[in-house]
């Protein structure tokens, strides 16, 4: 079994953490700092703080699941210089995973995001589709330099939501949707979204991650935008779940999940490569129960798009 850290945010060894979830895509560890650390099989499923088990993730996940069940939810993972393992006590020692950290996976999306932002900002205003290019009201409604990308993303988002939006999410017509619209009109938006909404990673956290990714792209790269919002978010981290904290910690640090990184890079290049952006959008929409959709809505908001966006309805 080959295991690598994939994010610069993974706390250095040694530490132990409670195993809180084991699913087909990720094993979730509750680190002592309150934020989750994920163990994934595919880099595409990564969060900001994660390990990737490059071969044998299914076996690792199964081991974690068995340990969870055997220990009534108190199984632990340990990360030290020997590697990453499941330490579930007597009941699970027979199935403890052996793992070797075979060299850190050098995943740090910040240089790529910085380059994408620089490329976007280097384009002349006309090529960026800035406000005033023409009289198209939708184009003018996205004065950010990402108007082409925004329209494509809005199109993909609307298509994915099908004939009628799900009533259960923050963009629906149910209680979460009603509350989202109220929050949106309030003075604390979007910081008030921390921990808000359905999901183990609350939908509001996804929205914020998408929003920060979009704002950073426009403003010069990772951590370049929204300093006050970032401070507010850091203060609010205890108000969300371990998975939400991990996501937001990454987004605040300029390292959103991989699918959002690709979305941002593709959005910056949308004029030349629409197909890549559509593929990135569809991959994002397949992420989680509604995480990708919520994050895309936040990203779209960051571009200033005010066209036929479902949020605006």
């Amino acid at each position: 079994m080959r295991v690598s850290t994939i994010g610069f945010l993974v706390p250095p060894p040694p530490w132990t953490a409670r195993v809180i979830g084991a699913t087909a895509k990720a094993v979730t560890l509750l680190h002592g700092d309150g934020a989750a650390v994920s163990v994934v099989g595919l880099p595409d499923n990564m969060d900001a703080r994660a390990f990737v088990v490059e071969e044998g993730f299914d076996e690792f996940s199964r081991t974690a699941g068995l340990a969870l069940r055997a220990d009534g939810g108190f199984a632990r993972a340990s990360y030290d210089r020997e590697g990453l393992g499941i330490a579930g006590g007597a009941a699970t020692s027979a199935v403890a995973a052996e793992a070797i950290v075979a060299g850190a996976f050098p995943w740090d999306p910040r240089p790529a995001l910085l380059e994408a932002s620089a490329r976007l900002r280097a384009r002349p205003p006309a090529a960026r589709g800035a406000a005033g290019d023409d009289n198209d009201p939708e184009r003018a409604s996205a004065p950010s330099g990402l108007s082409d990308a925004a329209r494509i993303l809005a199109d993909e988002l609307a298509s994915a939501r099908g004939p009628v939006r799900s009533p259960d999410g923050i963009h629906g017509a149910g209680p979460f949707g009603d509350a989202f619209r109220r929050l949106r009109a309030g003075p604390g938006f979007p910081a008030d979204l921390v921990g808000f909404g359905p999901g183990s990673t609350p939908a509001g956290d996804d929205w914020i991650a998408g929003y920060l990714t979009g704002r950073d792209l426009l403003e010069g790269g990772p951590r370049s935008s929204e300093p006050e919002l970032r401070s507010a978010l850091e203060a609010a981290l205890p108000r969300t779940t371990p998975a939400g904290r991990a996501l937001l910690a990454g987004a605040i640090a300029g390292a959103p999940p991989a699918y959002l990184v690709e979305l941002a890079i593709a959005a910056a290049a949308a004029k030349a490569d629409e197909r890549r952006l559509r593929e990135a959008a569809r991959a994002a929409l397949g992420h989680g129960a509604s995480s990708g959709e919520d994050a895309m809505a936040g990203f779209l908001d960051a571009t200033g798009y005010r066209g036929q966006r479902p949020d605006a309805l």
């Binding site: 209680p175 979204l193 921390v194 909404g197 183990s200």
Partner: peptide, 12 residues
């Protein structure tokens, strides 16, 4: 609603 008991969700 089945959700995590974050302060915002509890407020709602």
């Amino acid at each position: 609603i089945v959700a995590m008991a974050t302060p915002m969700n509890l407020d709602m």
